[in-house]
Protein backbone atom coordinates (compact mmCIF):
# COMPACT_ATOMS: atom_id res chain seq x y z
CA UNK A 1 0.00 0.00 0.00
CA UNK A 2 2.63 2.48 1.07
CA UNK A 3 5.08 1.35 -1.57
CA UNK A 4 2.60 2.52 -4.20
CA UNK A 5 2.45 6.00 -2.76
CA UNK A 6 6.21 6.18 -2.72
CA UNK A 7 6.50 4.86 -6.25
CA UNK A 8 4.17 7.50 -7.63
CA UNK A 9 6.17 10.35 -9.06
CA UNK A 10 5.28 13.38 -7.07
CA UNK A 11 6.59 16.32 -8.93
CA UNK A 12 5.31 19.84 -8.79
CA UNK A 13 6.39 22.06 -11.67
CA UNK A 14 9.86 23.36 -11.11
CA UNK A 15 10.18 26.99 -10.15
CA UNK A 16 10.90 29.03 -13.28
CA UNK A 17 12.80 32.29 -13.19
CA UNK A 18 10.87 35.48 -12.52
CA UNK A 19 11.12 36.65 -16.09
CA UNK A 20 10.10 33.28 -17.54
CA UNK A 21 7.11 33.12 -15.21
CA UNK A 22 5.96 36.60 -16.19
CA UNK A 23 6.50 35.93 -19.90
CA UNK A 24 4.49 32.70 -19.65
CA UNK A 25 1.65 34.70 -18.13
CA UNK A 26 1.76 37.52 -20.65
CA UNK A 27 2.02 35.31 -23.73
CA UNK A 28 -0.69 32.90 -22.53
CA UNK A 29 -3.21 35.64 -21.77
CA UNK A 30 -2.36 37.37 -25.03
CA UNK A 31 -2.85 34.16 -26.99
CA UNK A 32 -6.14 33.44 -25.24
CA UNK A 33 -7.58 36.79 -26.34
CA UNK A 34 -6.55 36.13 -29.93
CA UNK A 35 -8.12 32.66 -29.85
CA UNK A 36 -11.35 34.08 -28.52
CA UNK A 37 -11.30 36.90 -31.05
CA UNK A 38 -11.05 34.59 -34.04
CA UNK A 39 -13.60 32.20 -32.59
CA UNK A 40 -16.27 34.87 -32.27
CA UNK A 41 -16.60 35.98 -35.88
CA UNK A 42 -20.10 37.37 -35.47
CA UNK A 43 -18.74 39.88 -32.98
CA UNK A 44 -16.05 40.99 -35.41
CA UNK A 45 -18.69 41.68 -38.02
CA UNK A 46 -21.06 43.28 -35.50
CA UNK A 47 -18.44 45.72 -34.25
CA UNK A 48 -18.29 47.32 -37.70
CA UNK A 49 -21.94 48.32 -37.69
CA UNK A 50 -21.53 51.54 -35.70
CA UNK A 51 -18.37 52.86 -37.41
CA UNK A 52 -19.84 52.16 -40.85
CA UNK A 53 -23.01 54.05 -39.95
CA UNK A 54 -20.90 57.03 -38.94
CA UNK A 55 -18.75 56.83 -42.02
CA UNK A 56 -21.35 56.32 -44.71
CA UNK A 57 -24.49 57.97 -43.33
CA UNK A 58 -23.15 60.67 -41.02
CA UNK A 59 -20.04 61.25 -43.15
CA UNK A 60 -21.69 61.16 -46.58
CA UNK A 61 -24.63 63.14 -45.27
CA UNK A 62 -22.47 65.99 -44.01
CA UNK A 63 -20.09 65.83 -46.97
CA UNK A 64 -22.71 67.33 -49.27
CA UNK A 65 -22.89 70.62 -47.38
CA UNK A 66 -19.34 70.78 -45.99
CA UNK A 67 -17.44 71.59 -49.13
CA UNK A 68 -13.73 70.80 -49.36
CA UNK A 69 -11.43 70.69 -46.36
CA UNK A 70 -7.74 71.49 -46.05
CA UNK A 71 -5.17 72.14 -48.69
CA UNK A 72 -5.70 68.90 -50.58
CA UNK A 73 -9.40 69.51 -50.99
CA UNK A 74 -10.60 66.51 -48.99
CA UNK A 75 -14.29 65.70 -48.78
CA UNK A 76 -15.71 65.44 -45.27
CA UNK A 77 -16.14 61.69 -45.57
CA UNK A 78 -12.46 61.39 -46.49
CA UNK A 79 -11.54 63.61 -43.57
CA UNK A 80 -13.38 61.49 -41.04
CA UNK A 81 -12.22 58.17 -42.49
CA UNK A 82 -9.08 57.99 -40.28
CA UNK A 83 -11.25 59.25 -37.42
CA UNK A 84 -13.66 56.36 -37.91
CA UNK A 85 -10.77 53.89 -38.07
CA UNK A 86 -9.62 55.37 -34.76
CA UNK A 87 -13.15 55.15 -33.40
CA UNK A 88 -13.24 51.42 -34.13
CA UNK A 89 -9.95 50.99 -32.30
CA UNK A 90 -11.04 53.25 -29.45
CA UNK A 91 -14.36 51.53 -28.81
CA UNK A 92 -12.96 48.02 -29.17
CA UNK A 93 -9.95 48.73 -26.99
CA UNK A 94 -11.67 50.55 -24.19
CA UNK A 95 -14.65 48.20 -24.00
CA UNK A 96 -12.49 45.13 -24.31
CA UNK A 97 -11.70 45.47 -20.63
CA UNK A 98 -15.21 44.22 -20.06
CA UNK A 99 -13.72 40.75 -20.52
CA UNK A 100 -12.00 41.16 -17.13
CA UNK A 101 -15.41 41.67 -15.56
CA UNK A 102 -16.74 38.63 -17.41
CA UNK A 103 -13.80 36.59 -16.19
CA UNK A 104 -14.49 37.73 -12.66
CA UNK A 105 -18.20 37.02 -12.96
CA UNK A 106 -17.70 33.57 -14.43
CA UNK A 107 -14.84 32.45 -12.26
CA UNK A 108 -12.07 32.24 -14.86
CA UNK A 109 -10.26 35.12 -13.18
CA UNK A 110 -9.78 32.86 -10.15
CA UNK A 111 -8.03 30.29 -12.29
CA UNK A 112 -5.65 33.07 -13.37
CA UNK A 113 -5.23 34.54 -9.88
CA UNK A 114 -4.14 31.22 -8.31
CA UNK A 115 -1.71 30.44 -11.14
CA UNK A 116 2.00 30.86 -10.35
CA UNK A 117 2.41 33.96 -12.48
CA UNK A 118 2.93 37.51 -11.21
CA UNK A 119 -0.21 39.64 -11.09
CA UNK A 120 1.33 42.34 -13.26
CA UNK A 121 1.74 39.88 -16.12
CA UNK A 122 -2.03 39.40 -16.04
CA UNK A 123 -2.64 43.12 -16.63
CA UNK A 124 0.05 43.40 -19.29
CA UNK A 125 -1.01 40.22 -21.10
CA UNK A 126 -4.62 41.37 -21.12
CA UNK A 127 -3.71 44.84 -22.41
CA UNK A 128 -1.54 43.38 -25.18
CA UNK A 129 -4.19 40.86 -26.17
CA UNK A 130 -6.94 43.41 -26.30
CA UNK A 131 -4.85 45.97 -28.18
CA UNK A 132 -3.87 43.36 -30.74
CA UNK A 133 -7.51 42.49 -31.44
CA UNK A 134 -8.43 46.20 -31.51
CA UNK A 135 -5.61 46.78 -33.97
CA UNK A 136 -6.86 43.94 -36.19
CA UNK A 137 -10.30 45.55 -36.24
CA UNK A 138 -8.80 48.91 -37.12
CA UNK A 139 -6.84 47.30 -39.95
CA UNK A 140 -10.00 45.61 -41.26
CA UNK A 141 -11.66 49.02 -41.18
CA UNK A 142 -8.85 50.37 -43.39
CA UNK A 143 -10.04 48.08 -46.16
CA UNK A 144 -12.99 50.45 -46.69
CA UNK A 145 -10.57 53.17 -47.84
CA UNK A 146 -11.22 52.75 -51.59
CA UNK A 147 -14.97 53.21 -51.00
CA UNK A 148 -14.41 56.77 -49.77
CA UNK A 149 -11.75 57.58 -52.33
CA UNK A 150 -8.73 57.26 -50.05
CA UNK A 151 -5.83 55.37 -51.59
CA UNK A 152 -3.60 53.59 -49.11
CA UNK A 153 -0.23 52.33 -50.22
CA UNK A 154 0.92 49.14 -48.46
CA UNK A 155 3.79 51.19 -47.08
CA UNK A 156 1.30 53.48 -45.33
CA UNK A 157 -0.61 50.53 -43.88
CA UNK A 158 2.65 49.26 -42.41
CA UNK A 159 3.30 52.65 -40.87
CA UNK A 160 -0.22 52.70 -39.44
CA UNK A 161 0.12 49.35 -37.65
CA UNK A 162 2.35 50.55 -34.80
CA UNK A 163 0.35 53.77 -34.43
CA UNK A 164 -2.96 51.94 -34.21
CA UNK A 165 -1.46 49.40 -31.84
CA UNK A 166 -0.08 52.09 -29.58
CA UNK A 167 -3.41 53.94 -29.46
CA UNK A 168 -5.21 50.66 -28.74
CA UNK A 169 -2.73 49.79 -25.99
CA UNK A 170 -3.14 53.15 -24.24
CA UNK A 171 -6.94 52.93 -24.28
CA UNK A 172 -7.06 49.23 -23.33
CA UNK A 173 -4.90 50.06 -20.33
CA UNK A 174 -7.32 52.82 -19.34
CA UNK A 175 -10.16 50.31 -19.62
CA UNK A 176 -8.25 47.77 -17.54
CA UNK A 177 -7.60 50.36 -14.85
CA UNK A 178 -11.33 50.98 -14.54
CA UNK A 179 -12.18 47.26 -14.75
CA UNK A 180 -9.71 46.38 -12.00
CA UNK A 181 -11.83 48.32 -9.55
CA UNK A 182 -15.21 47.25 -10.84
CA UNK A 183 -17.19 44.33 -9.48
CA UNK A 184 -20.27 44.55 -11.67
CA UNK A 185 -20.90 44.71 -15.36
CA UNK A 186 -23.47 47.48 -14.96
CA UNK A 187 -21.04 49.68 -13.05
CA UNK A 188 -18.35 49.19 -15.65
CA UNK A 189 -20.67 50.02 -18.50
CA UNK A 190 -21.87 53.13 -16.75
CA UNK A 191 -18.37 54.45 -16.12
CA UNK A 192 -17.24 53.51 -19.62
CA UNK A 193 -20.10 55.29 -21.34
CA UNK A 194 -19.35 58.31 -19.23
CA UNK A 195 -15.69 58.20 -20.31
CA UNK A 196 -15.94 56.96 -23.84
CA UNK A 197 -18.22 59.49 -25.51
CA UNK A 198 -16.20 62.54 -24.37
CA UNK A 199 -13.00 60.79 -25.38
CA UNK A 200 -14.49 60.09 -28.79
CA UNK A 201 -16.04 63.53 -29.39
CA UNK A 202 -12.95 65.43 -28.19
CA UNK A 203 -10.56 63.26 -30.19
CA UNK A 204 -10.96 65.15 -33.45
CA UNK A 205 -12.32 62.07 -35.17
CA UNK A 206 -15.30 64.05 -36.49
CA UNK A 207 -13.99 67.62 -36.81
CA UNK A 208 -10.64 69.42 -37.06
CA UNK A 209 -9.33 70.54 -33.67
CA UNK A 210 -8.25 73.96 -34.89
CA UNK A 211 -9.99 77.33 -34.48
CA UNK A 212 -12.15 75.96 -31.64
CA UNK A 213 -13.35 78.08 -28.69
CA UNK A 214 -10.66 78.34 -26.02
CA UNK A 215 -12.27 76.04 -23.47
CA UNK A 216 -12.88 73.34 -26.08
CA UNK A 217 -9.29 73.62 -27.29
CA UNK A 218 -8.11 72.89 -23.76
CA UNK A 219 -10.33 69.82 -23.39
CA UNK A 220 -9.35 68.39 -26.76
CA UNK A 221 -5.64 68.69 -25.91
CA UNK A 222 -6.29 66.78 -22.69
CA UNK A 223 -7.82 63.87 -24.62
CA UNK A 224 -5.14 61.21 -25.21
CA UNK A 225 -7.13 59.84 -28.14
CA UNK A 226 -6.71 63.18 -29.96
CA UNK A 227 -3.02 62.43 -30.47
CA UNK A 228 -3.75 58.92 -31.71
CA UNK A 229 -6.32 60.23 -34.18
CA UNK A 230 -3.94 62.96 -35.34
CA UNK A 231 -1.12 60.49 -35.97
CA UNK A 232 -3.40 58.09 -37.83
CA UNK A 233 -4.83 60.95 -39.93
CA UNK A 234 -1.38 62.31 -40.83
CA UNK A 235 -0.36 58.92 -42.21
CA UNK A 236 -3.68 58.03 -43.84
CA UNK A 237 -4.15 61.43 -45.53
CA UNK A 238 -0.67 62.73 -46.31
CA UNK A 239 -2.19 65.63 -48.23
CA UNK A 240 -4.40 66.85 -45.39
CA UNK A 241 -2.07 69.73 -44.69
CA UNK A 242 -1.35 71.65 -41.50
CA UNK A 243 -4.80 73.28 -41.36
CA UNK A 244 -6.37 69.97 -40.31
CA UNK A 245 -3.56 68.78 -38.02
CA UNK A 246 -3.34 69.05 -34.27
CA UNK A 247 -1.25 71.75 -32.67
CA UNK A 248 0.00 71.86 -29.11
CA UNK A 249 0.99 75.27 -27.69
CA UNK A 250 1.17 76.54 -31.24
CA UNK A 251 3.45 73.73 -32.45
CA UNK A 252 2.11 71.39 -35.12
CA UNK A 253 2.26 67.74 -34.04
CA UNK A 254 3.90 65.07 -36.18
CA UNK A 255 3.07 61.36 -36.10
CA UNK A 256 6.20 60.84 -34.02
CA UNK A 257 5.41 63.46 -31.36
CA UNK A 258 1.81 62.25 -31.30
CA UNK A 259 3.06 58.71 -30.75
CA UNK A 260 5.24 59.87 -27.86
CA UNK A 261 2.28 61.49 -26.11
CA UNK A 262 0.16 58.34 -26.56
CA UNK A 263 3.05 56.20 -25.38
CA UNK A 264 3.47 58.29 -22.24
CA UNK A 265 -0.24 58.10 -21.49
CA UNK A 266 -0.30 54.34 -22.15
CA UNK A 267 2.71 53.76 -19.90
CA UNK A 268 1.03 55.68 -17.08
CA UNK A 269 -2.27 53.80 -17.51
CA UNK A 270 -0.70 50.34 -17.60
CA UNK A 271 1.40 51.18 -14.54
CA UNK A 272 -1.72 52.23 -12.65
CA UNK A 273 -3.64 49.16 -13.90
CA UNK A 274 -0.83 46.86 -12.77
CA UNK A 275 -0.88 48.46 -9.35
CA UNK A 276 -4.65 48.11 -9.16
CA UNK A 277 -4.41 44.37 -9.90
CA UNK A 278 -1.57 43.85 -7.49
CA UNK A 279 -3.36 45.37 -4.54
CA UNK A 280 -6.67 43.59 -4.99
CA UNK A 281 -7.82 40.32 -3.38
Amino acid sequence: MTSRTVAVEHRSPRAPGRVTAALDGIVTLWYRDLLRFFRDRSRIVGSFAQPLLYLFIFGSGLSASMGRLGGAGLSYVQFIFPGIVSMTVLFTAIFSAVSIIWDREFGFLKEILVAPIPRWSLAVGKALGRSTTAMLQGVLMLSFAPLVGVSLAPRLVLALLPLIFLTAFALSSLGLLVAARMRSLEGFQLVMNFLMMPIFFLSGALFPLNNLPGWLTVFTRLDPAAYGVDAIRHVTLPGAGPALGLTLFGHPMTPLTDALVVLAFGALMIALAVRAFQTQE
Binding site: R32, L35, R36, R39, D40, F106, G107, F108, K110, E111
Partner: peptide, 11 residues
Amino acid sequence: IFQDPSLDAQL
Protein backbone atom coordinates in the same frame (compact mmCIF):
# COMPACT_ATOMS: atom_id res chain seq x y z
CA ILE B 1 -11.49 23.15 -7.95
CA PHE B 2 -13.64 26.10 -7.03
CA GLN B 3 -17.23 25.87 -5.99
CA ASP B 4 -18.32 27.78 -9.08
CA PRO B 5 -17.13 26.79 -12.54
CA SER B 6 -13.93 28.53 -13.61
CA LEU B 7 -13.44 27.37 -17.18
CA ASP B 8 -13.25 29.55 -20.28
CA ALA B 9 -16.49 28.49 -21.98
CA GLN B 10 -15.38 29.87 -25.35
CA LEU B 11 -12.33 27.64 -25.52
